[in-house]
Amino acid sequence: MKQILNIFRKDLRRYWRESAVSVALLVAYGWNDVKGWAGEGNVAAYGGIGGLISYQFLSGLVAALLPVAWAFLIVRVIQGEALVGDRQFWVTRPYEWKKLLAEKVLFVIVTINLPLLIEDFILLAKAGFPPTHYVIGLLWMQLLISLILILPIATLATVTASVVQMILAVLGIVLYMIGVAALVSVVPSSSFSGPADSVELTLLIATCGAVIIVAIRPAGDGPGTMADSGSCSGHRSDRSSYSI
């Protein structure tokens, strides 16, 4: 626990700006939401058409920036102890992979999940619903966001060495998806919808989790690691390799 907290304090000290931006965007998102309910159907509430347009633009911008800020924060904190490369000072320090993994999870929970959960509580209360009645639903939402949004980003961050590499990887995935979509439109009988969806989602989540654990886990702790043939850099760390 001491090691987890030590790394956590370090990460918080280093990424407080990124964390603050992410929380500020979350607050702005919630504030826009509340303002949206108040002025629903009432153009005058926004100070006329111009006001409505700027409100819509602003809320659209915040809604787009929020996941980007989260992604940036996740990538920065994971690549802080980069898994790719062999020169990071920390790879020859007594880091324990389980504690390192736990610290990254803790950091994401504290800087992303927890503020989002608190905001959901406040929004529910503002909307007149008792939040305590919806705790399970809210936690389920957190789990879904973690699995569908945070986990894939974290997976990409573990196998890339920098934000630039990460962006390139995302672009590659987007291009691939566009290609698949184009293919699907050419062959109308093919379909990705149906009962197979949940299997695919489970597979995606399991793959992401496995990639992170395999990447972080050291060689001497069981079979299978990101071996020398390794990731993007051409080298691997047999141990957990995330650079501060």
Binding site: R87, F89, P94, E96, P218, G220, S240, S243
Partner: peptide, 19 residues
């Protein structure tokens, strides 16, 4: 292959290329 974690409490490593 098992030089991980606590083993490094007994090793001091300094390299010119270390980040």
């Amino acid at each position: 292959a098992r030089v991980v974690g606590r083993t490094f409490t007994s090793i001091g490593y300094v390299s010119e290329n270390q980040e």
